[in-house]
């Protein structure tokens, strides 16, 4: 009987994408409570497959909704809870209908994107390695999956520095589904910062008009305010980047270096003495 209650809440949730956040949150927590009473928050060997299916669906819906509500922490929690469900073999679900298919790749793709925007490249690659091995076992590549390949491509472009491609990919038509669009804003912020720090080092100076294009900003006014935010000097329609003087070796540095050399040499002498 409680199963029907849960599926009730679930169908409400699935229709509720436009409802106010408070309502969604309360619905989600009541769904989780139901799951708890069913003892299905964690899959056990004894859990019957309809309940497993329901639990997975609930958690997936919760994950997707929390992305929409821009709650990355909640999303991460849902993802972690979903993992044991994804580890189960397909046979434990016993579904034949296509509409109940797992949204695994979507959720995983979103999680990868989240890691990417947080700059957690180690975590990103760890998850990816796991996926790769699993896919290889099934005989198909990851490249075929649009939800997964999207963050993978983004990461590749970010690492090699093709920021223009990242920019193109974050536009509306480049995004595989609307949940992924939530991250676009954050990603643009990330690449803008990246480009800015690269430009500081790479250019001695830059015309404002060009900087506008480079930084994907809408107007020259925003370029100027962005430049001020980073402490750049704007003069005669050009941006002058502060020069770094780290090339010059100061007197003090040499002193430190010679101290190091002396210390090392004495160390060798001491060691030699103990050996001989």
């Amino acid at each position: 009987m409680s199963t029907s209650k849960l599926s009730d809440i679930l169908s409400q949730l699935q229709k509720s994408s436009s409802s106010p956040p408070q309502k969604i949150t309360s619905l989600l927590s009541s769904a989780k409570r139901e799951l708890l009473t069913l003892d299905a928050l964690l899959p056990r060997p004894t859990t019957p497959s309809p309940i497993l299916l329901l639990a997975r669906q609930t958690l997936e819906t919760g994950a997707l909704l929390s992305i929409r509500l821009q709650q990355p922490d909640a999303f991460t929690r849902y993802y972690q809870q979903l993992l044991p469900f994804y580890e189960l073999p397909d046979s434990s679900y016993q579904t034949s209908t296509n509409d109940l298919k797992s949204q695994r790749s979507k959720v995983t793709g979103l999680y990868l994107l989240l890691l990417l925007t947080k700059g957690d490249y180690a975590g990103f690659h760890t998850v990816l390695e796991g996926l790769e091995v699993e896919q290889a076992g099934k005989g198909k590549g990851l490249e075929g999956d649009e939800f997964i390949s999207y963050p993978v491509k983004l990461e590749r472009w970010l690492m090699e520095g093709s920021y223009d491609r990242v920019w193109a990919a974050t536009k509306r038509d480049g995004v595989p589904s609307e949940e992924f669009g939530v991250f676009s804003e954050v990603l643009i912020g990330t690449i803008r910062d990246e480009i800015a720090s690269c430009s500081e080092k790479a250019y001695p100076s830059l015309p404002i008009a060009n900087a506008k294009n480079l930084l994907f900003l809408e107007s020259e006014g925003s370029v100027v305010s962005f430049a001020h935010g980073r402490g750049w000097v704007v003069k005669d329609g050009r941006i002058y980047f502060p020069q770094q003087q780290d090339d010059m070796r100061t007197e003090k540095e040499i002193l430190v270096a010679s101290g190091q050399v002396i210390e090392n040499t004495i160390g060798y002498a001491r060691e030699l003495e103990t050996i001989v």
């Binding site: 090699e160 520095g161 093709s162 920021y163 223009d164 990246e194 480009i195 720090s197 690269c198 430009s199 500081e200 080092k201 790479a202 250019y203 001695p204 830059l206 015309p207 060009n210 480079l214």
Partner: peptide, 20 residues
């Protein structure tokens, strides 16, 4: 351009770019 700028920042090469 972006890639070269990134390499300069990462210290792969010692160079500078001229946008114009």
């Amino acid at each position: 351009e972006y890639i070269v700028a990134k390499s300069i920042r990462d210290g792969v090469i010692e160079a500078s770019l001229d946008h114009e």
